[in-house]
Amino acid sequence: MAHRNFKKEDFVKNQSGEFQLEFQEGNIGEGVDLIVERKNENGEYEVLQAEIKRHNKLIMIRWSEPFDGRILFDE
C-alpha cells in the first residue's frame, strides 16, 4: 500500500469545531481502502477510525484534534 504523511499543522478547524484534513481524490486514489494512522510518542503508528467524507473530488478526514500521521491507500 502507498502512503502519504501529514503533520498536525495541516489540519484546519471547521465550522463544527472538528479538525479537518483534505486530499484531492486523484492524489490518494479513489478512497475505497483508506486507512488513517496516528503517530504516537514512540514514533509508531496506530490505526484510527477517523471520519472520512467525500465532496467535490475531495476526501476529508476529521478528528477532534490535529495529529501527526499518515494515510494508507491502494495505488
Score class of each variant (00 low, 15 high):
residue 42 N to Q: 15
residue 46 E to M: 15
residue 48 L to F: 04
residue 48 L to A: 03
residue 39 K to T: 04
residue 44 E to Y: 13
residue 30 E to G: 05
residue 55 H to N: 12
residue 27 N to T: 03
residue 32 V to D: 05
residue 40 N to D: 08
residue 42 N to T: 15
residue 28 I to Q: 01
residue 55 H to L: 11
residue 54 R to C: 14
residue 58 L to S: 04
residue 56 N to L: 13
residue 66 P to N: 02
residue 44 E to A: 13
residue 65 E to T: 07
residue 37 E to R: 03
residue 33 D to C: 07
residue 27 N to L: 00
residue 61 I to N: 02
residue 30 E to D: 05
residue 33 D to M: 07
residue 62 R to P: 04
residue 46 E to I: 13
residue 66 P to C: 05
residue 29 G to E: 05
residue 58 L to H: 02
residue 43 G to H: 10
residue 49 Q to L: 09
residue 64 S to V: 11
residue 63 W to N: 13
residue 33 D to S: 12
residue 33 D to F: 11
residue 66 P to Q: 04
residue 55 H to K: 12
residue 59 I to L: 08
residue 65 E to A: 12
residue 57 K to F: 15
residue 54 R to I: 14
residue 45 Y to Q: 01
residue 51 E to L: 11
residue 41 E to K: 13
residue 29 G to C: 04
residue 67 F to A: 06
residue 47 V to N: 09
residue 65 E to R: 11
residue 61 I to T: 02
residue 42 N to W: 15
residue 58 L to M: 02
residue 38 R to Q: 07
residue 61 I to R: 04
residue 67 F to Q: 06
residue 29 G to F: 01
residue 42 N to Y: 14
residue 47 V to L: 08
residue 66 P to T: 03
residue 63 W to F: 13
residue 31 G to Q: 05
residue 31 G to K: 03
residue 55 H to G: 09
residue 40 N to M: 04
residue 36 V to C: 00
residue 51 E to V: 10
residue 29 G to I: 00
residue 46 E to P: 11
residue 31 G to A: 05
residue 57 K to G: 13
residue 63 W to V: 10
residue 61 I to K: 03
residue 49 Q to H: 09
residue 51 E to N: 13
residue 39 K to V: 04
residue 59 I to W: 01
residue 37 E to T: 03
residue 67 F to P: 04
residue 59 I to N: 03
residue 67 F to E: 07
residue 57 K to D: 14
residue 55 H to V: 09
residue 39 K to W: 08
residue 28 I to P: 00
residue 67 F to V: 09
residue 60 M to V: 15
residue 53 K to Y: 04
residue 41 E to Y: 12
residue 28 I to G: 00
residue 50 A to W: 05
residue 40 N to W: 10
residue 56 N to C: 12
residue 35 I to G: 00
residue 43 G to I: 06
residue 66 P to F: 03
residue 61 I to E: 00
residue 43 G to F: 07
residue 28 I to F: 00
residue 37 E to I: 01
residue 46 E to A: 14
residue 47 V to R: 12
residue 40 N to H: 06
residue 29 G to N: 04
residue 46 E to L: 14
residue 34 L to V: 07
residue 47 V to T: 08
residue 46 E to V: 15
residue 35 I to E: 02
residue 67 F to Y: 11
residue 62 R to Y: 12
residue 58 L to Q: 02
residue 64 S to W: 11
residue 59 I to A: 05
residue 39 K to R: 13
residue 47 V to I: 12
residue 39 K to C: 08
residue 39 K to L: 08
residue 60 M to P: 08
residue 31 G to D: 06
residue 27 N to G: 01
residue 57 K to I: 14
residue 56 N to R: 15
residue 51 E to A: 09
residue 41 E to M: 10
residue 56 N to W: 12
residue 66 P to K: 02
residue 54 R to D: 14
residue 38 R to V: 05
residue 38 R to Y: 06
residue 42 N to E: 15
residue 60 M to F: 14
residue 65 E to P: 02
residue 58 L to D: 01
residue 61 I to A: 03
residue 33 D to W: 09
residue 64 S to M: 09
residue 49 Q to R: 10
residue 64 S to I: 09
residue 44 E to Q: 14
residue 67 F to C: 10
residue 41 E to R: 13
residue 35 I to L: 02
residue 50 A to G: 10
residue 29 G to W: 02
residue 44 E to I: 12
residue 48 L to G: 01
residue 51 E to C: 07
residue 67 F to M: 09
residue 40 N to R: 06
residue 50 A to P: 08
residue 58 L to F: 00
